[in-house]
Design a protein around this nucleic acid. Sequence first.
DNA 1: GGATTGACATACGCTGCGTATGTCTATTAT
DNA 2: ATAATAGACATACGCAGCGTATGTCAATCC
Lengths: 188, 188
Amino acid sequence: MMAETRDRLLAAGRKAFAEKGFSGASMDDLTAEVGLTRGALYHHFGDKKGLLAAVVAQLDGEMAARAMQAGESAGTGWAALEAQGAAYIEAALDPEVQRIVLLDGPAVLGDPSQWPSQNACLEETRNALIALSAQGLLKSVDIEAAARLLNGAALNAALWIAASDDPPATLPRAQEAFKVLASGFMVR
Amino acid sequence: MMAETRDRLLAAGRKAFAEKGFSGASMDDLTAEVGLTRGALYHHFGDKKGLLAAVVAQLDGEMAARAMQAGESAGTGWAALEAQGAAYIEAALDPEVQRIVLLDGPAVLGDPSQWPSQNACLEETRNALIALSAQGLLKSVDIEAAARLLNGAALNAALWIAASDDPPATLPRAQEAFKVLASGFMVR
DNA sequence: GGATTGACATACGCTGCGTATGTCTATTAT
DNA sequence: ATAATAGACATACGCAGCGTATGTCAATCC
């Protein structure tokens, strides 16, 4: 019963934050939509930010799962990183992800790498780079820095795509450029 | 007289937004600090978002000026882009820039490329890439996409650096990695 | 010299958050 | 079995903060 209430609030929060943004979402409306009051919300999540953090963690997990799957099915080596980046860009095209994880999340909760959810996507990128390094396919660069830059590039690409006139047409442009850019880390 | 009032409000907004974030900044407090009331603010900027937009435009202009100067003094060719990127990363280390332009700005005003201030830094990067392309030093990539990715990488690097334990030590790691990454766009 | 516009201040209402308090149910202890 | 306690919510309250409507005063235009 209690876990179900939490889930309902989480789902309502996800919807409201995606549609109206963090500051635009009313906790009164949000809770009423699932037949509850603010009392339940503050009991489970502490405050408005707490709910956002929970929603972000959920979305982050889903994104990482997709990226990991994409990386695995692309086999090993350099193709895995490229596939992962492409998947990340695609995931970030989701309006929910965009608004909640990429825009409001950092503004309200601070730098993503400090989140308890520990930015699972960044972790994925790091792992891929480590694997490449072990295979001798990577230039000698700072892994952490490289992962950061790649992630940032992909993230910004997604923002660009979503705001563009024709997202479906922009997507491949970004993904192609990402591959070329990432090749900067490749041994020649 | 009137321009001076506007400037005072702008300065107060810049300070308040930097220190307390957008939602944390009170328009009452902010205006009182320069001996005015909210009436003046709404007269000059329309609403709270209007003030933020004006502050962002100001900061954006300053950043672009610094990046351009760095690019010019680095001479021509590939070094210019690298210097520009490094300057961008450094500029983004400023807490004011960080909080206002990189965090709250996108969350409140939406994608930076849609801002009236037209993200001057992105423009700089684009120009540098065009110059490189004309010199035949650039792989055949989508210029717009490339500029986006480079900018995103630099931006995220800045966020990482600022949140790190030892920013001064992290800075060179990021800048070095940026150079390596950017070389992905270089003809071999 | 009256009318109009611009540059602010003042007053008001409403939304919305967080907290304090109340109620009911389900355990746990005795 | 019942008393006590803790958990899961709802209700009630206070307060900050935004936007708007209205008022005032000076400058300018006709």
